[in-house]
Amino acid sequence: MIKFLSKKIFNFVILLLLIIQIFFYIYNKKPSFDNFSQKNVTVENFSSIVLGKSGITKIGSEKLNKIDNENIYLEGNSYLENKEYKIYGKNISIKLKEEISISNEPVKVINSMGTLKAKGFKNLGYEGRIIFEGEIEFVINK
């Protein structure tokens, strides 16, 4: 009798598990592949990594404003950092597709030659060139 009951219980459990599995199969939502795009997103104390032709660049700022899919604006104290340089500035506009970053605010750059200070910069990442403007002082390491 006990043997018969235990067999019944076992079958019931298996059936229950199968039903649960079918339930999951039917009601489980598949992952969405829709691309959600939202304009004018603002994030505070932001830092991220951008992968471009010029390599990996770490960016960060007090406030990040996403203008559209190709343009972002780093508001307040901001930085760009890669294997070649560290740029510390303010209010930096970044064109992601063209890999261009621009600022008309005072900037400090540290690279393997020394420390540079300028009144603004235009970083043409895809060309490997940075144009510094205004009064420039580049102190070369010993």
Binding site: I131, E133, E135, I136, E137, F138
Partner: peptide
């Protein structure tokens, strides 16, 4: 050092 009043590329 290098100093300039115009630009540095």
């Amino acid at each position: 050092y290098v100093k300039a009043s115009g630009s540095l590329i």
